[in-house]
Design a binder for these strands. Sequence first.
RNA 1: GGCCCGUUCGUCUAGGGGUCUAGGACAUCUCCCUUUCACGGAGGAAACACGGGUUCGAUUCCCGUACGGGCUACCA
Length: 510
Amino acid sequence: MSERRVRTRFAPSPTGPLHMGGVRTALFTYLFAKKHGGDFLLRIEDTDQTRYVQGAEEYIIEALNWCGIHIDEGVNVGGKYAPYRQSERKASGIYQTYAQQLVEAGHAYYAFDTAEELEEMRAQLAAAKVAAPQYNSVTRQNMKNSVALSEDEVNKRLKAGDPYVIRLKVPRNEEIRFHDIIRGWVVVNSNQVDDKVLLKSDGMPTYHLAHIVDDHLMEITHAVRGEEWLPSAPAHILIYRYLGWEQTMPLYAHLPLLLKPDGNGKLSKRDGDRLGFPVFPLNWTDPATGEVSSGYREKGYFPEAFVNMLALLGWNPGTNQELFSMEELIEAFSFERVSKSGAKFDPEKTKWFNQQYLRKYPITEIADQFEETLEKHNVSANREYVEKACELLREKAHFVHEFWELGAYFFMAPDVFDEKVISKKWDDQARSFFKGLPDAMKKSGNSAIELEEGFKSYAESAGVKANSMLQLLRVLVTGAASGPALFDTIALIGKEESVNRVETAIQKLS
RNA sequence: GGCCCGUUCGUCUAGGGGUCUAGGACAUCUCCCUUUCACGGAGGAAACACGGGUUCGAUUCCCGUACGGGCUACCA
């Protein structure tokens, strides 16, 4: 068998913002394709018209883009298998055709049951304590479908335009086995599988039919999706078989779920705002309610940190390496190293990842971000100065947005001074010591080292231990009790300015 | 309820019969470095769900139980 070019797809439905679990699925799908030099496609599964949400598709594309997940083919970039939106693909009649083909082959049938009739059937089965109440090989005999009804009756109904669906005719008591890349062999008896609806009464296919037709037509080689699909996978195998596509059907990989940090259960949209961390890559405003859900991007996370964190949830390289660029992830990724069990998401570790990237990031980009904050505070400073301040501040922070609170003093003289330090250390001795400091400083050089030497020799001549005055010096110049290396800070602020600050601080404090 | 999947420190995980007195990371604690905070360094506490097999030997293989999760729609 000749090796097919690897083609994977991420196929979300535009029912709202993509949440981080979805992003992870997209990421793994992408990594696998790229690892094998293949294609990654984006297909939009909008077969449920009632759940369509305005803006969701754009959100998905923007989110993937932010994460650095590049789409080779898809709704936004086109490609030889276009269109990539199922609602548009429906127009060509493909879903209808293949559903019809299944009916003709005797593997599917028309069903005319109304919602009420279905409900009644389930209620009856439940009342009779049937273990698995479902539309299947035994119950279908008593329902209104082309298996139970006479041919005449069926034709009459079709002619009359009665609404119908097409259901998969799942055989009785047959063993269905399939190989999952992550889980190995999974075996299910067909009695557990219900007669899934393939084509809805509005003419739209369900997910079950649509994803198979599209994966086949788009020559997808590996179908990656969440574990929640595992129970319906046997039905999908059957559909491939009945369509005659089993030989080329994609290999399935069912990813473990992302679980909420506290308690149990899969991570849901609500958890984020409840627990104080984002579950979405980007901010999302619900078009119906106006409600805003926060995103990692707006919270100040680097996309690289977000992606890195996500990659290590349910996958590991088998080494101790934790920091990965996208290229490194592509190189290292394999489904063999994806775990089977669900992973609880840890917001704390996510912060740690951002901190690591804050250290690694090019200073120019950090400065770009910080300058936005500075603008908001109506502060302007020359670029070189901002970059130097960033160099000092990045060692103290997890996020760029902390810089202002941490180091506004680089851009303006403080007007409050750390009370704890002042009340504890600002005594008569300190007062007289600092009174003489400006003159001494003026004589020193401008570098951090010279400033420090000057300070120490002044302390010595004053008969005071230099160390005992250092924190006060910091408070007088910056207002804060802690910060980056003190003389580096002073050198950056500048000797003149620092001297001025010491003098005005002394005034304010007396 | 039924079916499917899973189960190593609080969390993410390494481990595929002896090398496990179970390794790493986050978080936590102690100490060192530091004027300080952070970083960094050193160290500590912390896990194989339980019960049966298989085997000379099980964290590793099999079965059961428990627990957790998922699915059970003309939603994906």
